[in-house]
C-alpha cells in the first residue's frame, strides 16, 4: 500500500442529531476498483457527498494522494483530481453531446484562460478516444437532453473520462438501464480500470459480480464489512443487515 488514492478516516456528518455517516473509515489503493454496497439509507450517497464537498462533514478527514481535501469547495476537489457521476444523470441538457465533452475536457479553470476558440490537438485526440469508447459518434451533434437514458449515462461517464480525474466516484451507474445497457456500462468501467481509481455504489448484484474486486458494505452510516465478494456474501453480519430484504441476491 505504497500510495493510497483515498484515505477516509472517521468521516462523519450530523444532520441535526441524525448521523447519516458515522465514523466511516477506509483506504482505497491507487488503481483499485471498489464497490460500495449497503441497504437503503446506509449512507452511501451521503458518503459520496462528503468526499466530493457537496455536503460539509462534521468530523473526520478525507485525504487524496496525500492532500487533505476535507470540506474544500466542490470545484477545488474536482481540480485535485476527483470526478463524480450522479445517480440521476447530470449532463448539460441544452448543449450538444460534443459541447458537453468539450466543457469536460477543458483543463484551464478561469474565464480569461478560456477566451479562445476551437480545440487543441491534445483535446481533440482525447475526445476522439472517448467518443469511440462511449459509442456516441451517432449522436454527437444532438442536444444532450434528447438522448435516451442509457446514452445520457454514457455521456456522463465520458465526461468524467474527459475530465481525466484520477479518482472517479460512480453513484449507481446502471440505475434504470436495460440488461444490454448495463453490460455496455460494465465494459466501459472495465476499460477505465487501471488508469483510474474507481469507487462504485451499486445495487445490481449481477453488475457487481461482473466488475467487483473488493467490496465495502455500509450499514447505518458505518463500515460493516470489507473484502472479496465470496467473503462478503458469507459474512453473518452482512446477512443480518440485509435480513429485512432477504439477503444479498
Amino acid at each position: 500500500m505504497a500510495n493510497p488514492a483515498l484515505i477516509i478516516d472517521g468521516l462523519s456528518v450530523d444532520f441535526g442529531g441524525f448521523k447519516a455517516v458515522d465514523g466511516f473509515s477506509t483506504v482505497i489503493d491507487d488503481g483499485e476498483l471498489r464497490v460500495v454496497l449497503g441497504p437503503n439509507g446506509a449512507g452511501k450517497t451521503t458518503m459520496m457527498d462528503l468526499i466530493t464537498g457537496n455536503t460539509r462533514s462534521t468530523g473526520g478527514t478525507v485525504t487524496m494522494y496525500g492532500k487533505d481535501i476535507t470540506n474544500h469547495a466542490e470545484h477545488e476537489i474536482a481540480r485535485a483530481g476527483l470526478g463524480r457521476k450522479f445517480q440521476i444523470p447530470s449532463v448539460f441538457r441544452d448543449l450538444t453531446v460534443f459541447e458537453n465533452f468539450e466543457v469536460a475536457v477543458t483543463k484551464q479553470q478561469g474565464v480569461f484562460g478560456n477566451l479562445r476558440f476551437g480545440l487543441r490537438a491534445s483535446e481533440k485526440e482525447k475526445l476522439d478516444q472517448i467518443i469511440e469508447l462511449t459509442q456516441t459518434s451517432d449522436v454527437i451533434d444532438k442536444r444532450a437532453g434528447d438522448l435516451s437514458h442509457g446514452q445520457m449515462q454514457w455521456l456522463e461517464l465520458g465526461m468524467l473520462i474527459a475530465q481525466d480525474s484520477r479518482v472517479i466516484l460512480l453513484d449507481e451507474p446502471t440505475a434504470g438501464m436495460t440488461q444490454g445497457e448495463t453490460y455496455r456500462t460494465s465494459q466501459i468501467i472495465k476499460a477505465l480500470k487501471g488508469q483510474h481509481t474507481i469507487i462504485v455504489v451499486e445495487h445490481d448484484m449481477a453488475f457487481v459480480r461482473e466488475i467487483a474486486e473488493k467490496i465495502t458494505v455500509m450499514h447505518l452510516g458505518k463500515m460493516l464489512a470489507e473484502g472479496r465478494m465470496d467473503v462478503i456474501e458469507n459474512d453473518p453480519k452482512v446477512q443480518d443487515a440485509y435480513l429485512g430484504s432477504g439477503g444479498i441476491h
Binding site: 466530493t52 457537496n54 469547495a73 466542490e74 470545484h75 474536482a78 481540480r79 470526478g83 463524480r84 450522479f86 447530470s90 449532463v91 448539460f92 441538457r93 441544452d94 448543449l95 466543457v103 469536460a104 477543458t106 479553470q109 465526461m159 475530465q163
Partner: peptide, 11 residues
C-alpha cells in the same frame, strides 16, 4: 444548464 455538474468538473 447544470451549475452542480460544472462545479464537479472543476469550474
Amino acid at each position: 444548464d447544470d451549475p452542480k455538474r460544472s462545479r464537479f468538473l472543476g469550474f
